[in-house]
């Protein structure tokens, strides 16, 4: 589905690749592969993230990748890793299997919140950047951490909006605004916590370069409709950010001229 926004929105670049879509989506929690494929198509996303897991030895397993549109850029992730060492090993395995240097780095610190372990994330990012990976790190929405990850060589940073799978939306817009203002040249991808279209639009209006989401689409009652809504919200939010919003005022400001009113 093409929209009027096509052409007005600047392309999104990462790791030497250029994308039209600023929406990156996940591949988990869908009710069926067919439903996932339809949602992927509707979203217009050009990059999808997949997890690395042990091959089950007790049954034959088809390749999950066969259920993805071959045109999609695959972004392997280290979801489920709790230490830098596990994440580095997982990234190396993903690179060997997929022949891509892209890796979404995720090192989790706690099972209840799934908040990132920033210390372990930074350690893993340093190792992986040195090994030539294009590291996209998921981390807490913290400016100083963002700077350290960029200094380590990450081409983009992925602050959370809210806990993974929570659907709470951007919980700390001030942090994202500060990050945008202080790091005007950095690529910032909001990752995790988006629940519905307005959340995605808000993230983009705050200056995020892209949004990565999974559950908001996969757990919607109608995944294709929500994927479409997300596509439009990302475009609307990007356009609004580029357009530059009006200042907020406490009091009214008349839109019509005051002169010539019939008395």
């Amino acid at each position: 589905m093409s929209t009027a926004a096509t052409g007005l929105i600047d392309p999104f670049k990462i790791g030497g690749r250029v994308f039209t879509s600023r929406l990156i989506i996940g591949t988990g929690k869908y009710r069926s592969h067919d439903e996932m494929k339809a949602a992927h198509r509707a979203s217009g996303a050009e990059m999808v993230t997949v997890a690395v897991r042990r091959v089950p030895l007790d049954r034959s397993s088809e390749s999950f990748l066969d259920h993805l549109d071959p045109a999609l850029q695959i972004l392997p992730n280290t979801a489920g890793c709790y230490t830098a060492e596990e994440a580095v090993r997982t990234a190396r395995l993903a690179r060997e299997a997929l022949r891509t240097d892209l890796i979404k780095l995720e090192v989790i610190g706690d099972q209840t919140t799934l908040f990132p372990d920033n210390e372990q994330t930074l350690a893993a990012a340093r190792t992986l950047c040195q090994e030539g990976f294009i590291v996209l790190p998921y981390f807490t929405d913290d400016l100083i951490m963002a700077k350290k990850l960029l200094d380590a060589g990450c081409p983009a940073v992925m602050p959370l909006a809210a806990p993974i799978g929570s659907g709470l939306g951007v919980q700390n817009p001030a942090n994202l605004r500060i990050m945008r203002e202080q790091l005007p040249d950095a690529t910032i991808i909001v990752d995790a916590g988006v629940g519905t279209a307005s959340d995605a639009a808000i993230a983009m209006e705050l200056g995020a370069d892209a949004v990565l989401m999974n559950t908001a689409i996969a757990e919607a009652r109608d995944t294709v409709k929500m994927a479409t809504a997300m596509k439009l919200a990302i475009e609307a939010g990007r356009l609004a950010y580029l357009a530059g919003r009006m200042p907020k005022r406490l009091y009214a400001s008349a839109s019509s001229p005051l002169a010539g009113v019939v008395r």
């Binding site: 996940g26 591949t27 988990g28 929690k29 869908y30 009710r31 996932m36 993230t49 997949v50 997890a51 690395v52 897991r53 042990r54 091959v55 030895l57 397993s61 390749s63 999950f64 990748l65 695959i74 972004l75 392997p76 992730n77 979801a79 489920g80 997982t90 395995l93 993903a94 299997a97 997929l98 979404k104 995720e106 099972q111 799934l114 998921y138 993974i164 799978g165 990752d191 995790a192 990565l212 989401m213 999974n214 559950t215 757990e219």
Partner: peptide, 19 residues
């Protein structure tokens, strides 16, 4: 030996079921 492949997921709660 570890033999790995790719599965749906990412930003996914480990061992969780839908809902």
């Amino acid at each position: 030996i570890e033999i790995v492949h790719f599965v749906g997921g990412g930003a996914v709660r480990e061992r969780s079921a839908r809902g």
